[in-house]
Design a protein around this nucleic acid. Sequence first.
DNA 1: TGCGGCTATTG
DNA 2: CACAATAGCCGCAG
Length: 547
Amino acid sequence: MVVDGLALPVETDDAVAAVRLVEHVLRPRWIWWSNDTATTLVEAGVRVATCWDIAAVHRLIFGGWSADPALVWARLHDLARDTMPTDGPRDLFSPADGEGDEPDEPVGSDGHLRPDWVSGGWSTTTERLIRWAGLARTVAGLQADRLAALPDGTRAIATARSESAAELLCVEMSIDGLPMDREAAERIIGGFVGRRPRTEAEALDQRAARDADVLRHAPPGPDVDLRSPAQVKSLLRRIGVEVPDTRAWRLKALSDSHPLIEALLAWRKAERVATTYGYGWLDRHLGADGRLRGAWSGSDGAAGRMTASAGLHNMPAAMRAAVIAEPGYVFVRADLGQIEPRVLAAVSGDRALARATIDDDLYAPVATHLGVSRATVKVAVLGAMYGQTTGHGAQARRRLRSAYPVAMAYLEDADRAGQARRPLRTSGGRLIRMGPPDPGDRAERDARSRAAARGRYARNAVVQGAAAELFKVWAATVRARGAPLDGRVVLCLHDELLVHVPSERGEAMARLVDDSLQEAAHRWAGDTDVRFVAATRVITCWLDAKG
DNA sequence: TGCGGCTATTG
DNA sequence: CACAATAGCCGCAG
């Protein structure tokens, strides 16, 4: 079953009604070019169960971000990007693209999709609409063929489905938003930066007063802009503190040496709230309906984690006290325990490490096995996954390597691939491209350290990326199974889910979330003996679950 | 005006 | 203070 974009030659209401009917009767796996179609549907009140999101699958297969139909078609047919025709205005010297082509044929004589079709020409007649829908089905089939040809093709096709479901979830979270109590939020902000300023002048006064609280500790001298790290560094030098940078963790250690330092650290906290999570932030992102809304993306960045804007992923802990379930509702909050080492055990197939996942605390049996402290083990395991090569714990690293050779070799293989700029795939089939990152860090300018940085990046990407895939299977399962309880996933946070559900169904939803984890883990990892654990609670305020 | 550096927040 | 992300302000180049 195929649908594409609902700006159709038929009335939109008719199209939505048709989708609603087909969904109810047939529950198809809808195919569409991108989740824009899902957005149109959700805004019209239709939430479908499953789909094949061509753009999301394109990113899975080929990496990168662009995934418009013309590019998707070109890559699937191994056509060079630079031969793609453009839709811009033509001048006398460029041969008209597709000149002489049959206008009712979407594929030009050069093999590319024709720009006039891509840019909306598909919708001008019913015949074209049908042709375009058939094309989407063809493209989805070609994508499935590509995935099936990968070393673990069945698995990769399953990933395509769960990533598509994650796109549906992203659309729904973007539209639904996160419940947030405006008064509570304003109270918290007020505690940091004072009352909401009524005028621009009042805002400037408050800002100056905050600055003055720090500067009154300063010795006489030139004016200092606290927002300029270089000037803060000179200010610190004037009070006898010499530091390479002014990061909080560094200053915290010196806070006894001068009262200015503590004042500066407090200033930084307040300034963060004032500029990023203050009244302006509420005004931009908190709707009149008490929902905080940001844009969600299903697989951004290196390894395909979900991302969110509007501070949904990096909201200061204090602000979470304002994330409160609506009257008659509760939250079910669940977070996965130690997801990355457990995922490493699964994707590497390390039997010994898999045995350790039987414990609620994976690090405890590993510590016993290696004969070192739990804290040492944790640092060593995280260090192996992040690529730490310096610092203490060399002994723990050696023991880790001999006790869990399969897992460590998996990471080292990824590291070598990264150093050699060889692209990788996660266990679920997502391509990890190995071009940049080449950070501009002065300390990492030379070729060796850039190669080492790629190695660390690759090491992490195969674990973090696989964890993201498992997480999305879990989230999609909760979305599907939780719908009959009127449960809505309102936040995804890498290893944490927040579900908003009517109060009387809170406990049932909590059980469902736990069951969904077992279902997801089995679907994702098959019959490996890796155990995944979640801490699940029914709460009314997000902060209640912290600690 | 755009971009890299610095900083802070989160997992 | 490794790995990932978003976001704001400063300073500098164009």
